[in-house]
Amino acid sequence: MPRYLGVLLEIGLIVFCLIECIQAPPGRVRNLPTWAWILLILFIPYVGPIAWLVAGRPTAASAGRSVPWPATRTAGFPEYERPAPDDDPAFIARLAAAESDSDDRRLLAQWEADLRARESRARDAEQQPGDGSDGLRPPGTP
């Protein structure tokens, strides 16, 4: 088992460094071009991957970042950093002053009255066959 540990370590290091080298932005790789780093990682065991980690891979400063994570608690989503509307006293005052609720109730009552009137007219028209002037056909006509 210890004999295979070195081989597994080498393969893991090569795979890690190779993936990282391929994904690195070409302008940010240090000291050698990307293709040279790939050849170095693949053909020189242990030394190539370690050299990539030490001297080739982009640093956080060269990648244009000062820290590897966002500086805010909300992971860079500004919509979570804004205060909620119910935290704003002016918003709450506008809600209290608005009488949209009473307007909505009045409109709903009007719609219900109109619906009841149309239903009663439709029931009356069904009970009394008309001449068709009310838009309803007598029963049994196509």
Rank of each mutant, 00 (worst) to 15 (best):
M1H: 10
M1S: 14
M1L: 12
M1W: 15
M1E: 08
P2W: 14
R3Q: 11
R3F: 13
R3C: 08
Y4T: 09
Y4L: 12
L5D: 08
L5V: 08
G6K: 07
G6S: 07
L9Q: 15
L13T: 06
I14Y: 01
V15T: 15
F16M: 05
F16N: 04
F16Y: 10
C17I: 02
L18E: 08
L18W: 09
I19Q: 10
E20R: 12
C21D: 06
I22C: 11
Q23N: 15
A24W: 03
A24Y: 00
P25S: 04
P25N: 05
P25C: 06
P25T: 03
P26H: 09
G27M: 09
G27D: 12
G27K: 10
R28S: 11
V29I: 11
R30V: 07
R30D: 03
N31D: 00
L32F: 11
T34K: 13
T34R: 14
W37T: 07
I38D: 07
I38C: 14
L39E: 11
L39M: 13
L40K: 11
L40W: 10
L40R: 13
I41P: 01
F43K: 04
P45E: 09
Y46P: 06
G48Q: 01
P49M: 03
A51Q: 13
W52F: 10
L53I: 02
L53T: 03
V54E: 06
A55V: 14
A55W: 12
A55I: 12
G56M: 04
R57L: 04
P58G: 12
T59L: 00
T59N: 06
T59K: 04
T59I: 00
A61F: 04
A61E: 10
S62M: 13
A63K: 01
R65Y: 06
V67Q: 14
V67A: 11
P68Q: 05
P68R: 08
P68L: 05
P70S: 05
A71T: 03
A71G: 08
T72C: 09
T72K: 06
T72F: 06
F77W: 15
P78S: 09
P78H: 14
P78G: 14
E79C: 14
E79R: 10
Y80W: 12
Y80E: 08
E81W: 09
E81A: 08
R82E: 12
A84Q: 05
A84K: 05
D87Q: 15
D87F: 13
D87L: 15
D87R: 15
P89V: 03
F91I: 11
I92W: 00
I92F: 02
R94H: 11
L95Q: 13
A96S: 06
A96D: 02
A98F: 07
E99I: 00
D101K: 00
S102P: 02
S102K: 00
R105M: 00
R105F: 03
L107C: 02
L108P: 03
E112S: 02
A113Y: 15
A113V: 07
L115C: 01
L115W: 04
L115S: 07
A117E: 08
E119Q: 01
E119N: 02
S120C: 05
S120T: 08
D124H: 00
A125L: 04
A125T: 02
A125V: 01
E126K: 01
E126H: 01
E126W: 01
Q128P: 02
P129Q: 06
P129W: 05
P129F: 01
D131H: 11
D131Y: 02
S133F: 00
D134H: 03
L136H: 11
L136Q: 07
R137F: 09
R137E: 10
R137I: 07
P138W: 01
G140S: 06
